[in-house]
Amino acid sequence: MANIRDVAKHAGVSVSTVSNVLNGRTDQMRAETLVRIQQSMQTLNYFPNRVAQQLKTGQAKMIGLLVPSIVNPSFAALAREVDLAAKKRQFRVLIGNTYRQIEEEEAFLDDMFSHGVRGIIVAACDIEKAHFARAAEQGMVMVNYDGRMPTRAQSDHYALDSVSMDNIEAGRMAAEHLIAQGCRRLAFATVEGMTPSRAHKIEGFLRAVQYHGLYREGMIIEGQAMAAYGDTEMTELGRALALKISQQPVFPDGIVAINDALGIGLMAGLHQAGIHVPQQISIVGIDNIPLAGLVFPGLTSIMPPLREIAEVMVDRLIERTENPDMPPEEFLFSPSLVSRQSVR
């Protein structure tokens, strides 16, 4: 089935230009461009309003979920919980895999409009980008996941909810656990490319080490991703960082990983380098993905209450779709520690 990107390519225009046609914004468009797009839609049998008409009859209910990469186990776990929460309310979930690329995010938003979807969960993306603001102004209800409330959230046309684990507390809790178990030379392993949630985890980590007088230069160890932000390559990045750490003259005795996938890759790389976890280096991950309890040694991790988070996000989407005048709210969930064998 053709989508909006296929129409744009066939007509030789941008996705946003096709979106303007779908949403009736053609007053500034050249007549020949409009005709070319309409002909492309007919040629490709692209009928964007078909599902929207079905929605009006009450025969289908859908919400959208935009994630950077479903390959990342953290986002896969989120998608599962959102899907389960939606099904309990007789809704289905359409997932957009955008790799944090603006064109893909814009295309996903346009696809949601064309399918009649009026509520989406935006996971771990910069919700203050212009295309999200435009979507909100056009009536799209959004929940911002894994980020704090945007500064523009109180504006008349940009009201949205923010739902997240307390990432500052997650970073602090991970560092505190390592310190309590006797670690004194700590490090935080992450990937280049800062997002709000990553910055908050690092902030919490630094608060803990500074409080205990353990701060030193070079505590943040970053890996270079092949693609921006490294969402699809976390385990490989962890393995590469392990090699980097093993070559240091004095390596850390406790490491907080930005997420479990990177932490698992880190453990595999350290094992290959002949460094024993947890005897020589203790490791704590963040997210508590299912694989964390299956690897050896089991990865100690900071766990978000993902099921409760998903329930709130789906409920708020449905409620705000039915009542757009509801004031925006921020929901911040406390993390918890799941202790396994990766910490001495």
Rank of each mutant, 00 (worst) to 15 (best):
I4Q: 01
D6M: 11
S14W: 00
T17I: 11
R25W: 01
R25I: 06
A31L: 10
T33R: 03
L34R: 12
R36A: 15
I37H: 05
Q39W: 03
L44Y: 07
N45F: 12
A52P: 00
L55Y: 03
M62L: 15
L66S: 14
N72V: 04
S74K: 02
F75Q: 05
F75V: 05
E81K: 07
R89H: 00
V93K: 09
L94W: 04
Q101L: 13
E103F: 00
E104G: 03
F113P: 11
G116T: 07
G119A: 08
A123Q: 02
A124H: 03
C125K: 09
H131R: 05
A133G: 06
A135L: 10
G139K: 12
D146M: 08
M149T: 11
Q154H: 13
L178C: 02
Q181I: 01
A189K: 03
A189P: 03
G193H: 06
T195A: 08
P196K: 00
S197F: 04
S197W: 02
A208F: 00
L214E: 02
G218Y: 09
M219F: 10
Q224I: 15
A225N: 06
M234A: 14
G238S: 02
L241N: 08
L243F: 14
L243M: 14
D253N: 10
A261Q: 10
L266W: 01
G269Y: 07
G269P: 03
H271Q: 15
Q272M: 13
A273W: 06
V277E: 01
Q279R: 07
G285I: 02
D287G: 03
D287L: 05
G293R: 14
P297W: 11
L299T: 03
M303P: 00
P305H: 03
T321R: 14
N323C: 13
D325S: 15
M326K: 15
E329L: 14
E330L: 09
P335N: 08
S336M: 14
R340S: 11
Q341E: 15
